[in-house]
Design a protein around this nucleic acid. Structure first.
Lengths: 347, 347
DNA sequence: CTGAAAGCGCTAACAA
DNA sequence: TTGTTAGCGCTTTCAG
């Protein structure tokens, strides 16, 4: 039975081997200025006694804790959990660890998290803006203080750094085109808060498709959820409004996991049959949308890849001394998977 | 624009105020041996200049990093992400942070994670065993070395500590009874690996219900997935076997999120209609099972609460000097929600 | 009430 | 090639 107190330090090894602490330190780190004989001696002893360098002491010296702060919307959300998983796949192998905080779409929490993370002295930040965030000053401040940041998914151009995003324009464009091709013309769009980068881009794709097909854009068909659908009421109101219109839409494109699920549940409750009375295409990263009722046509993001890429770029930023010549804006492809919920009217 | 180098240390404050570092240290920590005047002086200066104690230095002294290591099955899993969320709700307010590692149902990864976490010098561990874990010696070792552990969901009795579990027996019992009451008698059970505590308990509930109702237990109706359904093939084989039987089951109870989803997808692929040809009751923590096809009758765990409770107990363990008189085994209620997939034959 | 000094475990500059 | 020394930022005796 090993006790905590048995944990070995360099000093212990030095004493046992009648060497200096410095020598031992260099030996375990395989420094060139140590003879092979001594190295072997030290390392044998070290591994035999399960020596593990004290992380905190190392941190204290290096001011580098091999830790990364992450801000996500919410953990129980299939998109974010995939992103997280992607990040973890990189940090796991690079021996970093991630400290996860949830914004829950609130600026307030976002700010608190940021404080917490900087206090924790993270080496870098991976952030996706909350739906309620309008100013990014708090991020500017920490960024200027020298902590590298990589933004993913919901990004801002106000801070000069890497960004990983999905092809939001393309995603909604594809989805909208698909609906149009299938005979739908009164297409509504229920989306997140106006300020978000993804909202703007997704809207752009929607408008682009309509324009291309000569369909007028009806602003009343575009519904924003200020809190990103956090409150189910937002979604319900949006749908109610749409349903009440004289020119009731015949299809909806929803712009996030949460809104998609919410909308589906509400339509079901209202006994609106899909796609007969209302076709649906939803942004979603569910793992098994085929077991939905009805099977949902989805636009899905390369979430895992997004997490991977963001973590990779951030670690590069952390480990390189100088700023890179220029920052990258990586755009990941969206995937439209056609299923039953958008079945053509005529087909 | 603040630079990283501008970060204040006690020494800086001491110099600026012409005090000793020790005095300043005590002042910021509100020690009784410092005069109010000096305290005010120091604290005013400190807050004005945004002084933040260096965490790593504090850790180095205290050997307490206010961090908790978590081992979960997988992040993108609705049960675990809810658990995580519950943990986070506690650690967030108590100013701990969690380091999340995924076992992905592999012992190997579980062991690696454990190493990583102890190296990170976490103050405690929150663990759910992987489906492949048969021996818990690796946990014993770290537990005996003095690191407190709380097990949740998939637990072991071999280590004397707190446990938070669901009422697994009751859950499957309820589910099975429900099926029997609805006219199903040939009920199969597709479950995880034999060794897991939850597997055993869930099986117990299943058997108890059958016995009570005088229905013989058919061992061929019980299918294990050694890897917890990680490989879809496991589930497919199980279902194939069941379907091939002369006495083909008329209902299935699945024992985890993953297996439930997998089974649903496979049955759908095979065009087995639910509940007509096969009724289904599934363990699941999906957030919106009502939008499934068909709506799924679920047995769901109090996942968030489980995370909360586990984190709470662990922190208590960490912060109390002595071992508690006795360890708690907290059992959380399961909830059976009846939906379409188990609709009665006669009704 | 305040301060000097030692030390947590490790690294790095410099000497030997 | 090895050892000495100083110090990262903080806390904690122990003197003053």
């Amino acid at each position: 039975m090993k006790l905590k107190s048995e944990i070995l330090t360099l000093k212990d090894i030095a004493k046992a081997l009648k060497l200096s602490v410095a020598t031992v330190s260099k030996a375990v780190r395989d420094s060139h200025e140590i003879s092979d004989a001594t190295k072997k001696l030290v390392n044998d002893y070290a591994s035999e006694h399960h020596y593990r360098p004290n992380l905190m002491a190392q941190m204290l010296r290096h001011k580098n804790g091999r830790s990364i702060g992450v801000i996500i919307g919410a953990i129980p959300n299939s998109f974010f959990s995939d992103v997280l998983n992607g990040m973890e796949s990189i940090t796991y192998q690079k021996d970093y660890h991630i400290i996860i905080t949830q914004s829950l779409e609130s600026v307030e929490r976002e700010q608190k998290n940021l404080e917490h993370l900087t206090w924790r002295a993270v080496d870098g930040l991976l952030v996706s803006l909350s739906a309620e965030t309008t100013s990014v000053d708090h991020f500017k401040e920490v960024h200027e203080s020298g902590i590298p940041i990589v933004f993913y998914d919901r990004v801002t151009d106000e801070i000069k750094t890497h960004q990983i995003v999905s092809d939001n324009i393309g995603g909604t464009y594809q989805g909208t085109m698909h609906l149009i091709k299938n005979g739908y013309t009164r297409i509504a769009h229920i989306t997140s808060s106006k300020e978000l980068s993804i909202t703007k881009e997704r809207l752009l794709g929607y408008e682009k498709a309509l324009k291309e097909q000569g369909i007028p854009i009806n602003p009343d068909y575009i519904k924003y959820c200020k809190h990103g659908g956090k409150e189910i009421g937002e979604i319900e109101t949006a749908i109610d409004d749409l349903l009440k219109m004289k020119q009731r839409p015949d299809a909806i494109i929803t712009a996030s996991d949460r809104i998609t699920i919410g909308a589906l549940a509400i339509l079901k409750k209202k006994k609106i049959s899909i796609p007969k009375q209302m076709a649906m295409v939803g942004y979603s990263n569910f793992h098994s949308p085929e077991i939905f009722n009805p099977e949902l046509t989805t636009i899905s993001q390369a979430a895992f890849e997004m997490g991977r890429a963001a973590a990779e770029l951030l670690i590069k930023l952390i480990e390189s001394k100088r700023q890179p010549a220029k920052f990258e804006k990586r755009v990941l492809p969206m995937e439209l998977v056609v299923r039953e919920s958008s079945k053509g009217r005529k087909t």
